[in-house]
Design a protein around this nucleic acid. Structure first.
Lengths: 118, 118
DNA sequence: AGCGTTGATAACTAGATGGTTTTATAACTC
DNA sequence: GAGTTATAAAACCATCTAGTTATCAACGCT
């Protein structure tokens, strides 16, 4: 219901390397826009736009200190994203992969990859 | 290095509710394109495009059985995504949030929100 | 009051995305 | 070989994205 758009916004925000780098930087503490923009080979407005995306996704909140607008990380939406991904943990673990292959072998006898006469 | 584009493609693929629903369906087992398209209020080519996105992200692989092209889930890329998110786990847990607020209080004495004369 | 700094906003561009309809390909069925 | 089913491909469209440059607003400093 409500979780869908949150996941949409969160995953979309994470799909960009610049934004992931910004989050990484903010994990070390608050930073201003120019501080955040400095490492990147792009203009300040571009970074401002990335910040707006992160803000819309609820991953960044901003205070106000004089003309600075310090950004801080809010990792809460990442929790829901992680919870979604957790549902698939069993599917990427080796044991499951092998089990899956085995089940496949057993159920599809009409197309065996071995065991038939040459 | 190499992980960046993988995360890009993975998170981008997950940013769409239709594609997440497709993955959910595939977690229950293989399915053909028309089976996957059936629950959605959209045309078959649209679903085919979504599948191509999932395939490019390595989240779906396809076999061939007569004219069907059965899709199966490959959750492996989700592992890397989850590993990335895990780095932020501490930041969304309550205890950290409180610690963070406390640290903030202690370090920024130049702008106290209380304690100053009115 | 005037200046420099910080950041947002506007207007524009190129390319990606998500959808459509129509058409083509390939394999099974009769 | 004709028809049907399953899927891909093509052409098109509207909207979003990620970037640009140029401009504007707010604030602090002297």
């Amino acid at each position: 219901m409500t979780g869908t758009d949150v996941l949409d916004a969160t995953f979309a925000a994470l799909a960009d390397p610049t934004r992931r780098a910004i989050l990484h930087r903010l994990a070390a503490g608050e930073a201003t826009v120019t501080e955040l923009a400095q490492p990147f080979a792009m203009s300040q407005p571009a970074v401002s736009k990335h910040l707006k995306v992160l803000e819309r996704a609820g991953l960044v909140t901003r205070g106000r200190s004089a003309q600075r607008r310090p950004c801080r990380l809010n990792a809460r939406p990442l929790q829901e994203a992680t919870r979604w991904l957790e549902n698939y943990r069993a599917y990427w673990e080796e044991s499951y992969q092998r089990l899956d292959a085995l089940l496949d072998e057993l159920t599809s006898r009409d197309k065996p990859s071995f065991g038939g006469p040459p």
